[in-house]
């Protein structure tokens, strides 16, 4: 498929918020300047209450903007007629849909609504698109399955198929993975990235899953209360301390090196760990978690030697010369604490 790198979604000095009773309005964020290109998968990250949902609703045309400009394909969002907009932006939302008697096929077919006739009859072409989309999201063989008999993850995949047959260049998803288990989350985000690339769609996903966003997003948009939205390639944002600043909270630190959060703790004692491989990694993890600093340097601290032979053991040499061989990390931690 040709990669057409045109700007799909663009905002200029956009302000989002809510109209309140009377003539008042509550502006949550202003001066938002972002772009989303065709074929690009962007993740909108931010803590709860940051206004992610409001921004998403504004960009999908659910609520009016407060100021500035939003355009899709070069045309202002507000200038689209209702039925035109349905062919430009499709959405997938957080809500769990429990619709008795509705099958996957029925659900996905509703995505063709902007194209079908007065009674919503499906043409042969429509049916073909629906079947194709069901296959594309990995639900082949599920077409006649009832929605109520499916897992939450499968149901959200069906909603993504609905968005696909709606055949819009822009797909916006508002925390669709919020209530899913980790494997389903990974599957969905991977699927979205693939669809963005292969189908040349612009996909914007709001999510809490920092790890996944860092690994898979082409662009990340960071949004926090009282801050300017920052957008960019994940790595640039990490290097510019973007995540640190956005997720600042007492006792929690974004570790730029590992790209994950660390809980700050007073380090009590240093322990030297000798070994390698997967045992080494998890032993260090356990020691860090329980408040020890680990090192490979020699010095006047306890040593732990990992014996990776047939009789796997952790051998603890205390500074006083005593030696203990322990079978599990649990026993080892207990032993260290006793000293």
């Amino acid at each position: 498929m040709p990669m057409d790198n045109a700007v799909l979604l663009q905002s200029n000095d956009l302000a989002v918020g809510y109209r309140q009773s009377g003539n008042k309005s509550l502006v949550l964020h202003k001066d938002i300047n972002v772009q989303l290109h065709r074929g690009e998968f962007a993740c909108l990250l931010g803590p709860n209450g940051a206004g992610k949902s409001t921004l998403i609703k504004t960009l999908s045309g659910f609520i009016p903007k407060m100021a500035g400009k939003v355009s899709v394909n070069g045309k202002a969002l507000a200038d689209y007629k209702r039925n035109e907009l349905a062919k430009v932006v499709s959405v997938v939302l957080t809500e769990r849909l429990q619709i008795p008697n509705m099958t996957v096929f029925d659900l996905v077919a509703l995505g063709r609504t902007p194209y079908t006739d007065f009674f919503g009859m499906l043409s042969k072409h429509d049916k073909q698109l629906v079947k194709q989309a069901i296959d594309d999201v990995g639900l082949s063989g599920f077409a006649n399955r009832q929605l109520v008999c499916m897992s939450d993850g499968e149901r959200q995949k069906a909603m993504i198929a609905k968005a696909l047959v709606q055949d819009t260049p822009l797909i916006i998803l508002d925390e669709p993975t919020a209530f899913l288990d980790l494997p389903s989350k990974i599957e969905i985000v991977q699927l979205l990235k693939k669809l963005a690339r292969e189908r040349n769609r612009g996909i914007l996903l709001s999510t809490h899953d920092l790890d996944l966003a860092l690994q898979l997003a082409d662009k990340i948009w960071l949004l926090a209360q009282g801050r300017q939205l920052e957008a960019g390639v994940p790595e640039d944002l990490v290097l510019a301390n973007g995540f640190r600043r956005f997720f600042e909270k007492e006792g929690i630190l974004f570790d730029n090196e590992s790209g994950s959060f660390k809980v700050e703790r007073e380090q009590m004692k240093t322990i030297r760990v000798i070994g390698k491989g997967v045992e080494y990694k998890w032993l260090s993890h356990a020691l860090n978690r329980t408040g020890y600093q680990t090192t490979v340097e020699e010095g006047n601290y306890p040593n732990i030697e990992i014996d990776s032979n047939a009789n796997k053991a952790y051998i603890l040499h205390q500074t006083d010369g005593s030696r203990h061989a322990l079978r599990t990390i649990e026993d080892l931690l207990l032993q260290i604490r006793q000293e």
């Binding site: 999908s60 045309g61 659910f62 209702r82 039925n83 907009l85 349905a86 062919k87 932006v89 499709s90 959405v91 939302l93 809500e95 849909l97 619709i99 509705m102 659900l107 509703l110 995505g111 609504t113 902007p114 079908t116 007065f118 009674f119 919503g120 709606q166």
Partner: peptide
């Protein structure tokens, strides 16, 4: 009978229905 199409879309709830072009 004339309301069949919008009723079908409304099964998804108002947000999805609106996004699919229903007034």
């Amino acid at each position: 009978l004339l309301l069949i199409k919008p009723l079908n879309v409304l099964l998804l709830g108002e947000n999805y229905a609106e996004n699919l072009g229903i007034n």
